[in-house]
Structures are given as structure tokens and as C-alpha cells.
Design a protein around this nucleic acid. Structure first.
Lengths: 350, 350
DNA sequence: CTGAAAGCGCTAACAC
DNA sequence: GTGTTAGCGCTTTCAG
């Protein structure tokens, strides 16, 4: 292999501009203590020579590495890619993470590590030692893995925990679950619905509670009753079917149903079909997951979309901005709603 | 920020093992000239101390950077992510690229650059200067951009061109288009079809010709005629509809149709439906793109799936293995077929 | 405000 | 075979 050396180094720039290396370094690092005149001269040389500092050299000299590691669960990530079910979690992460990194002159490296493995610590230590990243973005289920967070803290590496609300080391960045439920509910209310059923997720997920609260609050704000309008599932299809049946057979049959997962929503759709309901004519349906299947089913489902890209963008900004992983308020990012064909005004209003 | 220094360096290992730095370095780099005894001693120290070399330092000292850059088109990639249509191109690339890199102790960095922009050269130069990658993986449409390939060659950086067959600098790695068409055709033949229509892509795409050849060859091998069984589209929906109509209204109405894009296949499906054909009972349909919509439509479509992950894996292996970007034979990777519900034996056989 | 010196962790090139 | 020397490109001291 050719002995690859940097084509144009800080030395060339210094010579070209007739200043010391140090001055060039100061310009690169945007230090304030440089006379405007020098600054201009150096900048001109950098531009002319097309100089770009080597991140390896910068790291070596004790500065930043300009590298951010995104730590994903190996098994889940690979399984998702192999299934090709279009779970675009990683894509959205890249969208938010990569672009934000690029904006700030950073690069992002995706690392896959086993959660359950005993050598997770070894893997992480190795990655840190090899890459020496300035920051790490943790994704579920790593976000609340204390083994990881402790290690990162010990190494004094800034990190963000996506999808976590637990205060603690690192920045917690999560979606506004309650707000999302409220958004969904208000969309339906605006359409004219008054009986809006809600199929919540299982109680052992903290977010289930937050979502239910959002629905309750939105209903209350609109002066609408919620009695007999709440059912609970486990995110799976079967439980969704049962919950939908309970709602539809209940004392106050809803004209719209919000379900907290794509599977439960699909189950609701299936049941509605079997009963001869027109969707959205007789029943509006809204999903809390915006997976591809939800987009290609007939009718395409209105759905809450999780702002993974924004979460990651926030995470990167925090991690870059403040290298000291001080405990901070969790950052809550609002969800958005993608309106498709499964929600409409109830027939009674049409 | 804390002055972050490597926790355990080559020096610690050397001291611990009672050898010189160089010996440790030799062990790290798997150089043969180390006595087994020393080797064992050093390895033990490395293991005990949990030492992992810093890639920054390795690069600085003139060795490899253990970094591979995957160069993707900015606009397309971002558009794909934003659309959330589940084009899992990047995912599959990551699947193949990331894992292969990891196996060999490399990391992959995804870089987005504008194809059309004038500053593509500036962007690429900057990335190279900053990262100093050992290799670059080019994806369409960069794969045949001579500006890029020349720059890479000039910097003597190994690179692979995915989806390209043009010989030249770098390694060309592409799917076996003809083989894919043959695979599709043979699947249908095995099912009992004798009249198999083919909707080709536009002539200005080289791969259109290859695919058509594959179909022709498979038909010929089976002793089946192909007259009046070939139609041409432009990959779009409307052209697919017209092509399908021509086939169905032709002299020898096919019992199965292969279309060279998901849109043309969907158009064929729509037309078949309108004519009261049962799919696959009256007409089997096979797509050449395995996009999500193809998987969620009813019936789910049998489709050729492009081996992006494997292509990328091959590309990485080549680039890592042979740093000298000598011209080499293009590497052709076979496609696979995912059988779903849109293909079956023709009714006449049922 | 600017420059000179030292060194980050590692490997290339030589010596031994 | 193994150890020694000299940097890689940059930023940190610390002087001027």
C-alpha cells in the first residue's frame, strides 16, 4: 500500500499564510484570540489549499475525535434488516443523526452490540478504545442499561438515551406520548367524533399510562365522556381484536377507535370489516405505529408517527454541545400525525 | 472537557509483558516474525489489560485507518428516508457492509454527497482528508461518476462500485440480472406455465437487455416460444398497464407475466383485476422489485430480491483485501426469488 | 495576541 | 527475532 500522507497539512497552510502552526490551529478551532487580519489571511490559505484537518490527528493531540457512536442492539437491528418488514427505525435514526452530525462537522458510526451477551462490556470498551468517540447515542433497549451508562460515565463520554425518561447520567430524549395521544384524539374530535374508543397498551409499559392520560385529557377538555370507552391490549393482534370487540359491543359503541400499536389497529380493522362496518364511514381507525403495513393496507391508516429522526437529532446536538454528561431534564419531542384514509367525519355528520 | 487519554496503551502492554513497543505492535499487526513464546506473553497481557489499539493513532503512524466510507447520493437517500416508503436500500447496505466491516475490525461511515452539485469534488476531498478511509464503497449513481472514481484513484484509495459492470478503476460489483430473469422464468416454468410474458424495462438501461436475455434463454432452454410475449415499458405504472394490455390482448395470451419493476407489476395486477382475472388462478404475476408495497398488496407478490446486502459485503471484502485498486473482473452476485402468493400453477393444470 | 516546544499512541525504518 | 529511533498531524502547554 502506498504510504498515504495527508496531501495538505496544517504546516502547508501555515507556510502559505506566513504564520505559525499554532495560529492556524486557533483559526480551525474558532478561538477568539486571533486578529481579524490574521484570521482572514489564514482562512484564505485554507480555502485556497483546500485544507481539511485530519480527525485522527486532532484526536491524537487530545482534542475531539469528531466521531459519534450510535449504539444499537445487534440482534434486533439485524433481525429488522433481514425481515425487510420496513421497520425504518434505523433509517430514521440515520436521517436525524447523520445529518445533524454532518452539520456540525461530525461523523456517525453505527455500532451493533449484544444486549444480553456477557461480553457487552468488552464490546463497548473495545469500541470506545478504538474509536474514542466524543459522544454516544443509546437506543432502546440500551438506553436504560446501567452497565452501559456507568461505563460511559466512567469514561466521561457524553451520551444520550433515546426513548428513556429516567433522569440520570446522560441526556434522556423521548417522544411526548401523552401529547401524541392527545393529538390523535383531537384530530378525531375535530372531525366531529364524540365517542372515541381507546385501546391502550399493557400496564407494564410506562408509556401506556402516558398515552391513556393524553386521551383522557383531550376528551375531558372537549367535555366528552370516556366511560366504557377504554380497553387494554398487549400490543398484539389477538388482544387488539378482543379489545375492539369489547368496545364495539359495549354500552357506548364508539364511532372512532385509537389503538396503541399497528397490530391492534389492524385487528380492529379486521373486526370492523367482518361486522360490515365501512371504514372510515362507520368507524374511524387510528394507529399509534406508522409501520409500512399500516400505509399499504386498505384503507391506508391515519397514524401517529414517532419522531425518531428528531429524537436522534436532539440527542446528537446535546451530546455535541455539552460534553459533560450532567444530569439534565429529559427532552420531550412532540409526535406528529399522518392523516390517511382511515379517519373521517362520522356518518351522522356527513 | 476532561483531557481524555487512552486508558491502556501499547506502552502499558509492553511494560506488562516485558517487551518493547515494537513487539506488541507486531503482535497487533499479526506479523509473522514473533517467537511463539513472546506472542503468547504479549497476547496474554493484551487480554488481561483489555487493550485495544486506537485507530486514530494507527492511522497517524501511517498504517490503516480501519475506516470504510460508504458514499451515497444525498438527495436520493434523504428523500428515501423522508418518504418512508420503506425502500430499504440503505438498510441492506448497512446489513452487508456494517457486519462485514465488523468481522474484519473495520468501521463503516456513511457519507452523503450531492451528485449534481459542483462541490461534489470539494465534499469528497474534504471527507477523504478528514477521515482518510482505507476504502470507499460507491453506490449508484456515484458508481459510474468518473469525477469520483478519478479522485479516488488519484488518492490511491481502494474502492468498489456497486451496481456497475464497467471495468475500470475499482471493483465493479453487480447483481446477475440475466440470472435473475432466468430464475424468475424457471420458477414459472416449473409451476407448469408455457406462455410467460415479459415486460422489459426501457432500452436505455443496460440491465433491461440483460434481463430480457435471461428470460429468452430460460424459455429457449425449456423449448418454449417467446413470440408476441415480450412488451416494453419505462418502469412506470402507466407504461406497465399498456404493456400488460398488449400482452393480454396479443396472439398468445400469457398465463404468467414477469414485469421488470414494482410499478409495472402493480399495473399488471390492476389490469388483471379489472378484467376479472383471478391472480394467481388465471394469471401469475412476478415482480422484479421487492419493495414493501409488493409485500403488502393482495395477493403479496412473488418477486426477485436484489442482493444489496451481499453486494455490499462483497464490495467491503474486496476493498479491505486488496488496497490496490487494480482493474479486476466485475463481481456478479446472484439474485434470489421470494415466492409469495401471486404465482401458482396455471388453472389448466390445477 | 502570537510563537516555540512537547507529546498524544502508534508504526516505519532501521539497527542490533 | 527484537529493540531503538524518528516521526505522522495536530493541539496542548508555556513563553514571549
Amino acid at each position: 500500500m502506498a504510504r498515504r500522507r495527508q496531501a495538505v497539512t496544517i504546516r502547508h497552510v501555515a507556510a502559505d499564510a506566513g504564520v505559525s502552526l499554532q495560529t492556524v490551529s486557533r483559526v480551525i478551532n474558532k478561538e477568539p484570540s486571533v486578529r481579524p487580519e490574521m484570521l482572514a489571511r489564514v482562512k484564505a490559505s485554507i480555502e485556497r489549499l483546500g485544507y481539511v484537518p485530519s480527525i485522527a490527528a486532532q484526536r491524537m493531540a487530545g482534542s475531539r475525535s469528531y466521531l459519534i457512536v450510535a449504539l444499537n442492539d445487534r440482534e434486533r437491528t439485524i433481525a429488522g434488516w433481514r425481515d425487510r418488514q420496513g421497520t425504518d427505525w434505523v433509517d430514521q435514526m440515520l436521517l436525524g443523526g447523520l445529518l445533524t452530525c454532518a452539520e456540525h462537522g461530525y461523523r456517525m458510526i453505527v455500532e451493533l452490540v449484544d444486549t444480553h451477551s456477557d461480553h457487552i462490556e468488552r464490546e463497548l470498551r473495545a469500541a470506545i478504545a478504538a474509536i474514542r468517540p466524543d459522544g454516544v447515542i443509546l437506543t432502546p433497549p440500551h438506553s436504560e442499561n446501567t452497565l452501559i451508562t456507568c461505563l460511559l460515565e466512567e469514561h466521561r463520554i457524553a451520551f444520550a438515551r433515546i426513548g428513556s425518561r429516567i433522569a440520570g447520567p446522560g441526556f434522556a430524549v423521548a417522544m411526548d406520548e401523552a401529547g401524541a395521544a392527545r393529538l390523535a384524539t383531537e384530530h378525531l374530535i375535530a372531525l366531529g367524533h364524540r365517542c372515541i374508543g381507546f385501546i391502550a397498551g399493557p400496564d407494564d409499559y410506562e408509556l401506556s399510562g402516558w398515552r391513556t392520560e393524553g386521551w383522557l385529557a383531550a376528551m375531558a377538555d372537549a367535555g366528552l365522556p370516556t366511560d366504557d370507552l377504554l380497553a387494554v391490549g398487549d400490543f398484539g393482534f389477538a388482544s387488539g381484536r378482543a379489545a375492539a370487540a369489547a368496545l364495539l359491543d359495549g354500552a357506548v359503541p364508539p364511532t372512532a377507535i385509537i389503538a396503541c400499536s399497528d397490530q391492534m389497529t389492524l385487528a380492529t380493522l379486521e373486526l370492523a370489516r367482518e361486522r360490515g362496518f365501512d371504514v372510515p364511514g362507520d368507524l374511524s381507525i387510528l394507529s399509534f405505529d406508522d409501520t409500512p403495513i399500516v400505509r399499504f393496507v386498505a384503507p391506508p391508516l391515519t397514524a401517529i408517527v414517532q419522531p425518531i429522526a428528531e429524537l436522534t437529532a436532539c440527542a446528537v446536538k446535546r451530546v455535541i454541545g455539552d460534553p459533560a454528561p450532567e444530569a439534565a431534564e429529559p427532552i420531550i419531542v412532540p409526535a406528529t400525525l399522518t392523516i390517511r384514509a382511515s379517519t373521517a367525519a362520522p356518518r351522522s355528520l356527513a
